[in-house]
């Protein structure tokens, strides 16, 4: 059941990312919805699910892009694993800790991703700090909102069901 959920989360985020990417990218701000999904899955399901989710999502992303296959996969694997560990070792139920995790995860992801490309002398990134900070901020906001929505959803459905029951009576 969890695997299906993870698969759905990755697929949905990929679908959204590939279809909405041009709308989400404003100037230098580009939200990575797949990364948000990976961190979300890792925080809710633990390090093993997080690392596998990161690996699969990253590899699919790599395959769809024109870069080297594996660099995004490796970055998201590490992020998924670390976020999973944080999710199991710390209480991350409030918005602020979640915000910090999403923000930090984006920074770690960018460091690994860009670091590997620079290390392999394949691409150069001119002063990426501001762009990474903006993306981290955007990812953190989207991530926190996603958490809130998912947590609110069951309550909303239940309240609507109760309201319908009262009307019938």
């Amino acid at each position: 059941m969890r695997a299906v959920g993870v698969f759905l989360a990755v697929t949905l985020s990929l679908a959204l990312q590939t279809t909405l990417a041009r709308f989400l990218a404003r100037g230098n701000v580009a939200v990575d919805l797949v990364l948000v999904a990976v961190v979300y899955v890792a925080l809710t399901s633990g390090p093993v699910t997080g690392l596998f989710c990161g690996a699969i999502a990253g590899l699919i992303q790599d395959a769809l892009s024109s870069g080297l296959i594996g660099i995004g996969g490796l970055a998201k694997t590490v992020v998924g694993f670390l976020a999973g560990i944080i999710g199991t070792q710390f209480i991350v139920t409030h918005s602020l800790p979640r915000f910090v995790v999403f923000f930090g995860a984006t920074a770690v992801h960018a460091a690994i991703f860009m670091g590997l490309y620079i290390l392999l002398d394949l691409r150069h990134f001119d002063a990426p700090y501001a762009a990474v900070a903006r993306q981290a901020l955007a990812n953190a906001i989207v991530g926190v909102i996603a958490f809130q929505l998912v947590e609110l959803l069951p309550g909303v459905v239940e309240r609507r069901r109760d309201a319908r029951g009262r009307l019938r009576r």
């Binding site: 093993v48 690392l51 296959i69 594996g70 660099i71 694997t77 560990i85």
Partner: peptide, 26 residues
């Protein structure tokens, strides 16, 4: 925070190694 000598740690290292091999091959 995490002991790398657990099954999860080995799994993590295996997946990371797999990625490194994949990148190196290209």
């Amino acid at each position: 925070i995490a002991d790398i000598r657990t099954r999860t740690g080995y799994l993590f290292l295996a997946v990371v190694l797999g990625h490194i091999l994949l990148i190196s091959a290209q």
